[in-house]
Design a protein around this nucleic acid. Structure first.
Lengths: 237, 237
DNA sequence: TGTTTGTAGATTGTCAACAATCTGTAACGG
DNA sequence: CCGTTACAGATTGTTGACAATCTACAAACA
């Protein structure tokens, strides 16, 4: 009963009434994985995990099942579950699908720019730009991810948002490998600039341009990441 | 210990060594749902289900978690799990995403038609055509679905296949509502014809045409399904 | 010395029992 | 007569215990 899921004991009661224990555990692990606090390939053992979270093994196992279906962990029978590792080839595959999805997102938004303008995305980009100037890698990166997520959400298509998020999560899993040591601030500024141009194109309702921009943005992002990773593997010091 | 997962007791042992009980239960339920034997909206109660399958409630609960993440069931805390019902609006959303995915599939295949030619897809279409003539709705429909699935698999992109299957499954969930009573044989023949034309375009490496064909095919399929469902709701006799 | 076998500990897979919650029904009061 | 409350049965949520499996280390043998 030492470390529980929530810091405030009173709030956790309310949470327990709406969300089941397994879903809380799942969200917790998901956050840990996506934040890079659980590195790909590392093993998740039930008993210590259950102890840490103050629950029994049942909910933990159920959370594992959900995470497996989300592609965040890999379950090996009688051996355990491991944070999923994504190879460069897999990342390329995922990027390819994501490109198709994001093109759809951008096409939809450019067709109805009104909502996008009211969503306060300029603010997100402005903050991201500030953090980039300050060299605050983590916060800027988080805002860049939020920008894409907000775009997906603005389409109003739940299935689209769902699939986008899964792809984005898997890629963030891959990204941790590259970012573990190297944090390229210039690439972040490039991303913010790309986002600005993209948002302008959407706001102008220029579908053609917006699609071209998102395509180039993702391709550049993909290439940058792959190169970064290749460099790391060459000199793993 | 009456009804177990497999008919052959010897084979089930081997299966149990590679696949865990939860994954077997999950696959079983998934098949039941996709086959339409479990109607959307119907409740899945743990105890009878566990009894039927000869397992305890634990594995069943774990299977539920996986199915929920796959979008096949909906879990309501302290109330139970239900086969997911998909509204017309949701189906439209899913179709929109699927269209983007299938366009990517077709684009990739048209860029490398060699593999597609060797996959024996003509055979699938030929069989589907025969069943359509005979009025064997179920078998023809299954082959039409297999055709799309094989196309997705032929891209060699696992992520792409994954996302395609999820979309296809959710739509098949929706389709059951429409097909429950009405089985339009003519639409099946139309689908087979569409598939033939699409395959020819891919084999010829005509990317433009292939993309146009798949787009029209899906749009026609979507409109047909929605109309069918609207008719049913008007005259629910 | 290198390989194999055996064993102890740890970990996962499964189960059955207990606690909490919900649903439907019947009694009660306005 | 209608709405509210109390209760019983059923169902879900959670847990701890037992069985099966794996892993790592050590002893025996070639």
């Amino acid at each position: 009963m030492n470390k529980r899921l929530s810091a405030q004991p009173t709030a956790s009661i309310e949470l327990l009434q709406s969300h089941s224990l397994p879903s809380l555990v799942q969200r917790h692990l998901e956050n840990m994985i996506l934040a890079g606090q659980l590195i790909p390939g590392s093993k998740l053992t039930e008993i210590p995990l259950a102890g840490q979270l103050g629950v029994s093994r049942g909910p933990v196992r159920e959370a594992f099942r959900g995470l497996e279906e989300k592609g965040l962990v890999r379950v090996e029978r009688n051996r355990g579950v491991f944070v999923r590792t994504i190879t460069s080839a897999e990342a390329d595959d995922i990027y390819e699908v994501r490109q198709a999805i994001e093109e759809l997102i951008v096409r939809k938004l450019a067709a109805a720019p009104d909502r996008v303008m009211e969503a306060g995305l300029e603010e997100v980009l402005a903050k991201a730009g500030k953090f980039a100037e300050k060299g605050d890698f983590a916060r800027c990166h988080a805002l860049n991810i939020e920008f894409h997520d907000r775009l997906a959400a603005l389409t109003g298509n739940a299935a689209l948002l769902d699939h986008y998020r899964r792809l984005a999560n898997e890629l963030s899993l891959f990204r941790h490998r590259a970012h573990a040591k190297i944090r390229d601030a210039s690439s972040l500024r490039a991303s913010v600039a790309d986002h600005r141009a993209l948002l302008a194109a959407i706001a102008a309702g220029d579908r053609r341009l917006a699609v071209r921009l998102i395509r180039e943005h993702l391709e550049a992002s993909r290439a940058r990441l792959q190169r970064l990773l290749a460099d790391r593997e060459d000199s793993p010091g």
